[in-house]
Nucleic acid binder design. Sequence first.
DNA 1: CGCGTTCTTGACTAAAGAGTCCATAACGAC
DNA 2: GTCGTTATGGACTCTTTAGTCAAGAACGCG
Lengths: 207, 207
Amino acid sequence: MPRPRSFDEGRVLELAREQFWATGYAGTRMDQIAASTGLGKGSLYGAFGDKSALFHRVFDEWSAAIVGQAALRLTGGSDEEAFARLSTYVHFVAENTAEDTDRRGCLLAKGTAELAQHDPVIARRSAETMNALMALLHKEILACQRHGDIDNNADPAQLAALLLAVLRGIEAVGKAGVDPRTLAGIADSALAVLPRPAPSSTDCQLP
Amino acid sequence: MPRPRSFDEGRVLELAREQFWATGYAGTRMDQIAASTGLGKGSLYGAFGDKSALFHRVFDEWSAAIVGQAALRLTGGSDEEAFARLSTYVHFVAENTAEDTDRRGCLLAKGTAELAQHDPVIARRSAETMNALMALLHKEILACQRHGDIDNNADPAQLAALLLAVLRGIEAVGKAGVDPRTLAGIADSALAVLPRPAPSSTDCQLP
DNA sequence: CGCGTTCTTGACTAAAGAGTCCATAACGAC
DNA sequence: GTCGTTATGGACTCTTTAGTCAAGAACGCG
């Protein structure tokens, strides 16, 4: 058994991700990554292969994390709290976006947009990520409907797609410089606007 | 009076925009642009300056076009048709995104994200563009409220922000590979979900 | 028609970046 | 401690790319 790594692989991927986030794939220099991690280029290439391979690892880890985060916050729990979970999650995304507009953001909209054309693997995986998120939202909406927080007549798949678009949209406008207050407002109104069940006919009385 | 340009400046900007769209700022090579336009690099640099200046012109023209397009479709008309205009516009964006997922898309999410950090001008202008769009949506929602198509209790600014996020979100998920049908569905549900005025109490009768 | 001005062309320069290589250091096993 | 294996670091190469330049072509004007 030979000499072990002197650096934390995960940490390197994290720093690389920051770079890719900030400057996109083409805009990121391997030298920057080497410098920010303190590694020599030899080690970097030895451990991860070339730039494209490094990006793939970063991308895969990141999309897993996004889905994982969503799953963590949305899965498993009573139908009763489903709407609250949804609400928390939507606000979480909004806040997260607002906090660090330039660091965080959507690799799906950056590295992806650049690479997807030339790299079918990235394209496929980004679609998978979207579908996974949509599935999670779908499940949660069904739970809301079971508990009576969302109108049963509404199509849950449609609502899930809408919510997903809103979440991505929040990131997009956030990155474009819209202020954090507005982002939070968007999260609020997205939830407010979800169709509530029609009140039962007995509720329909004049005071 | 000297020799005139032998090429159409607007056309060159158009082709350059395609490139920037497809591959982002850093990923776009001046040589590609020269090749696709048929111009020599000398002419290119002579006419537009350096890469960054060229991008600025492309970006400015594009953001003006986006806002112009929205203004064209949303402005001026009766309150009566306001909701229909809104609906048409939202679907227009969805279809447009669906049609050419990889060519079109959001410069605000690409060139911007890369450049905004280092180029305050781009950052500012992208924020302005968002605000302009939001203002247009805001006006339209007010018109809807006047005509009774949207609940007067709803905050029009919030709804405008929400709609803007949905529109950007449609582009984002479209680019991530979500299928066109779903995009159209998002447009539908975004409109369906807008709060309708509460029915007047006289409507509240059992059959 | 000829002149001056501006465009055009493409070869050229300079710099930056991806990826390589090798001498050396560090570790684990025995 | 010694040996074999693998990481390390940085100098090095080779390719790509932004940007320049000078010679020549094209146009408008008088």
